[in-house]
Amino acid sequence: MSDVERTDLNRLRDIIRSAQQQGDQYPVDPKARITVGSEGEIYTGVVPTGRPLSKVQHGTFAARVRGREVEDLQWAAKHMPRNTQFIEHRDARGWCYSFLSQMGRPYTMFAYFDGTSYQVKLVEPRLEGLVGAHAGHLYANGRLCLSQAGGSGQPTLEEAYSKSVLWATGMDVVLAGYPFPFSTNNEFEYGL
C-alpha cells in the first residue's frame, strides 16, 4: 500500500520527532512532511492531488506548566471527578468540574489559583443574588467564601475542591430554607 492509502504510525512518530529535534516546524522535503486531508486523513510523503490539504506544524506538543500546576494536574487526575477539565484561556486557568451534592443536586464549579490562594466559582446552578454572602457564603460574582482569611480561598487545590463539595451540601440546606450548617458564623441563626 502506498502512503496515500495508509499511514504507518511509527513513521509518523519518526517524522515528527525528527522535525522537532531539528527545530524544523515546516520541513521542505516532502518525505519529511505530514499533511492532513479535509476528512481527517493523514498523509506522509507523496500526497493526492486535487484534494484540500492542510500542512501540519511539526513543532513540539507542549503546555506551559509550572511546578505547582504539574502537581495540581496530577492530583486532579486522581482525586477530582472524572469530568474535570483543565481550562486554559486568556481570562482563566483552572479546573472545571461537576458533581452531585449529598442531596442529589448537580453543581458545576471552577477552581483556580489567583496568585495567593485557590478560589472556587460556582458555575451552575446560578445562585448569585439569591442568598446573601453571609447566609450562603457566596459572593455576588459567584465566588465561594471558603475561609475567614483575606481572599476567602484555600491554600491548596485539594482543600479548595473538598471544601467546595462540602459548601454545595451546605447550600442545599440553605436552599431548603435553613441556615448554612457548616459555619460557626451562622450558629446564631439556629438559636444555638
Results as ranks from 00 to 15, higher is better:
61 F>M: 07
100 L>V: 01
113 F>D: 15
44 T>V: 13
94 G>D: 11
66 R>Y: 08
55 K>L: 07
85 Q>W: 00
112 Y>E: 11
127 L>S: 10
32 A>G: 04
79 H>G: 00
125 P>Y: 07
158 E>F: 01
91 D>C: 04
95 W>F: 15
65 V>P: 02
84 T>V: 10
64 R>M: 05
127 L>K: 10
63 A>K: 05
157 L>P: 02
149 A>E: 11
136 G>L: 09
61 F>D: 05
54 S>T: 07
138 L>K: 05
155 P>Y: 04
40 G>D: 03
42 I>G: 03
39 E>I: 00
37 G>M: 02
34 I>Q: 03
81 P>I: 08
116 T>N: 15
36 V>I: 15
130 L>S: 13
64 R>P: 00
102 Q>G: 15
64 R>S: 08
72 D>A: 14
101 S>R: 13
154 Q>L: 09
118 Y>D: 04
127 L>D: 11
119 Q>I: 12
58 H>Y: 04
77 A>M: 11
82 R>H: 14
157 L>C: 02
81 P>R: 08
49 T>N: 02
93 R>A: 14
162 S>K: 13
82 R>A: 15
92 A>F: 15
157 L>S: 07
92 A>V: 14
124 E>G: 01
116 T>V: 14
144 L>S: 01
127 L>H: 10
57 Q>F: 12
37 G>C: 05
82 R>E: 14
89 H>F: 00
31 K>M: 07
128 E>C: 10
67 G>R: 12
37 G>E: 03
135 A>G: 11
134 H>W: 11
73 L>N: 13
99 F>T: 01
141 N>M: 11
31 K>T: 05
76 A>K: 06
69 E>A: 06
55 K>Q: 10
142 G>T: 10
36 V>C: 12
98 S>C: 10
61 F>Q: 03
100 L>Q: 15
95 W>Y: 15
107 Y>T: 10
121 K>G: 07
110 F>R: 12
36 V>Q: 05
79 H>P: 00
32 A>V: 00
90 R>F: 09
133 A>N: 09
72 D>F: 01
65 V>A: 10
134 H>A: 14
138 L>N: 08
